[in-house]
Design a protein around this nucleic acid. Structure first.
Lengths: 358, 358
DNA sequence: CCCATCAGAGTAATCGTTTTCCAGCGCCCC
DNA sequence: GGGGCGCTGGAAAACGATTACTCTGATGGG
């Protein structure tokens, strides 16, 4: 029986059949091995033959079957990307850059949004079953034990921040301190002393680490952080709104508030405006991340920028170097990610005769 | 030579080897065929054997190799999702729901963001090369000729809106008119007569169709649309800001503005606030889509909700039914998607003695 | 001038499944 | 009690690539 029964006869309405490597070989009058070598740019193939093969490839519009390739090579050319919440505007922006970097290298992205909680296990399972060649864990600071399943299988991973200092994986080290310190010095220079902080959800390592960075930067800039001014949010609008409400209820509210991410800051801004406070006159506000939206809220948000391009590119680079390397795993690498203050219009000197209006 | 050389001897530090179907067969004392049948729940396999196989599977933590499966079955269990811009908050929300629906059916998502313009071709190429089993085209109303490459290959597709009435593919028919009409009637009831519209980029079909729906609904609700009040935006904040700026410059600005999507409305809102206009007192504003953010801008945006869950589920359902069906393609199916007005706080009666303050 | 070496192309094994085909076995009915 | 038939389960052929190995012919050195 012919391999492809009656291609031209049974389905005349099917002009675009998909050709395989043997079709190309036949048309070019060479063996499949030569075709494969040509496609993979193995240098030993004769230039004349290569030209014939390439012509056949063009004529037939041939391209290799990904799964067959993956099967024999053992690599899927799929990269997993683990994010906490695709709905948070920070992440689509990151994903976009990540995708760009991956596609440039011939990889595709499998996005896993871990959303609330125990999704992580399912998401990981899906990635393992799809045979991802590497995983970028962008849930800022999550070296979850569940991830061991990956490391057992020697799937390369790259993390953003980790709490353990001896973590045996490649890590993107975000220099939160740098940007935070700049922000605090900026606020201090404006005359602020009572500076609040609305964190993310502290069960997320991401949030914990940013809070630590805030506290450290406070000490470093000579301020003393008032305990009652450090609140927990959820890295979303709601948390920012709720956090700001709580801060305003205090007997001595802060004159400036730094937020663990921009969405929190925007939520806080919303609450201030709803209650008739003017920003920055009545309260200064600083965000973190510099998402696109921050430039467009009113007033435009002063925030600390963390370069997403830098993160995406470093992560892909780290992953690929691990994937390509065949030698036993070498020491973990670290990739510094810088942060810096972007001053817009939500910071000003504190009102001298400020009275909370309740 | 053994198939897996020295598993236990050469790599003692590698506890989690990956097992294949033969390992399971050996351990269960059956043939690989029986294991495969058990895994795929073929009913003819003896219950006792099945139990033995399942035990072996559990013991070894076996799961089938996706690429081998895909290779032999010809299906990748990958669904392509084409969106115009992952950065627009509407789409992450949609993607999330889409992913949920796909994963439930054992499919994975390949997301393609067509961003500016001719990316489309590359994105499609990537999808074809990955052998997607189906593609959902969420670029609202884009039956681009480039997509022919998919239909030639008989890749099932599902669209949101199309302009051609005889389009030979499954289509999600969003009933824009319904929500638009509700919105216009609401505005009319409040006393508005001069109603503006800021569209999306008209090169996108999405935008064109929404504009048509607006104009049709205007006629239907007895209003006459003033030509000068219908502007082109870009479905982003910037377009909304710019559009509102233009409208305010008019000798007779509208008293209410409907926007083609929420981001546009939020941009317009931003401009109004920057210029000291109060919303809704000085100007009423209505968005479209009901993205999460809309509830949290200040004041909360009155908007037309289009159910993303409905879209995602219908799309996946349409795709799967095409993928599963082996019979020659049947007539295109249509899935109605409803829209409805969500009244929040950006609409009010027009100010009687309104003077633009320039 | 002959043999060793090497470059380059072809043959075939392999990756891990699914699935077709076939053999064996028990059962039913005559 | 024997023959046919229906089930079950196994052996083996795909799926479409990569690549180790083999083979052929050419080339260079002794």
């Amino acid at each position: 029986m012919p391999r492809k029964p009656g291609r031209a006869t049974t389905s005349p309405a099917t002009p675009n059949e998909r050709f395989d490597i043997r079709d190309v070989a036949k048309r070019a009058g060479v063996s499949v091995a030569t075709v494969s070598r040509t496609v993979n740019k193995v240098p030993t193939v004769n230039a004349l033959l290569a030209a014939r093969v390439n012509e056949a490839i063009r004529d037939l519009d041939y391209f290799p079957n990904t799964q067959a390739r993956a099967l024999v090579s053992g690599r899927s050319r799929l990269l997993g990307l683990l994010v906490p919440d695709i709905t948070n505007p920070f992440f689509p922006e990151l994903i976009k850059r990540f995708e760009r970097a991956a596609v440039e290298q011939g990889y595709e992205l499998l996005i896993g949004s871990t959303d609330d909680d125990s999704d992580l296990q399912h998401v990981l399972r899906r990635m393992i079953e799809r045979n991802v060649d590497g995983v970028a864990v962008m849930t800022f600071g999550a070296e979850d034990p569940v991830l061991d399943e990956l490391s057992h299988r020697h799937v390369p991973m790259v993390f953003v921040d980790v709490s353990k200092t001896d973590f045996p994986q490649d890590v993107l080290l975000v220099n939160y301190g740098q940007g935070m310190l700049e922000a605090l010095q900026h606020l201090a220079a404006l005359g602020h002393r009572d500076i609040g902080f609305i964190s993310g959800p502290l069960k997320e390592h991401s949030a914990l680490i940013r809070r630590e960075a805030f506290l450290a930067s406070m000490r470093q800039s000579g301020c003393t952080a008032r305990e009652d001014l450090v609140l927990e949010g959820d890295h979303q609008l709601e948390g920012g709104m709720y956090g700001m409400t709580s801060l305003l209820r205090l007997p001595h509210p802060p004159t400036a508030v730094l937020c663990s991410n921009d969405m929190t800051a925007i939520g806080a801004l919303r609450t201030l405006q709803q209650r008739g406070f003017r920003v920055p006159d009545d309260m200064s506000l600083v965000g973190f991340d510099d998402i696109h939206l921050s430039e467009f809220v009113h007033p435009p948000l002063t925030t600390v920028r963390m370069s997403q391009t830098e993160i995406a590119q470093s992560a892909v680079r780290a992953l690929l170097s691990r994937i390509e390397q065949t030698t036993p795993r070498s020491a973990p690498q670290f990739f510094p990610i810088s942060t810096r203050l972007i001053i817009r219009e939500t910071t000003a000197p504190p009102a001298l005769t400020r009275r909370p209006r309740f």
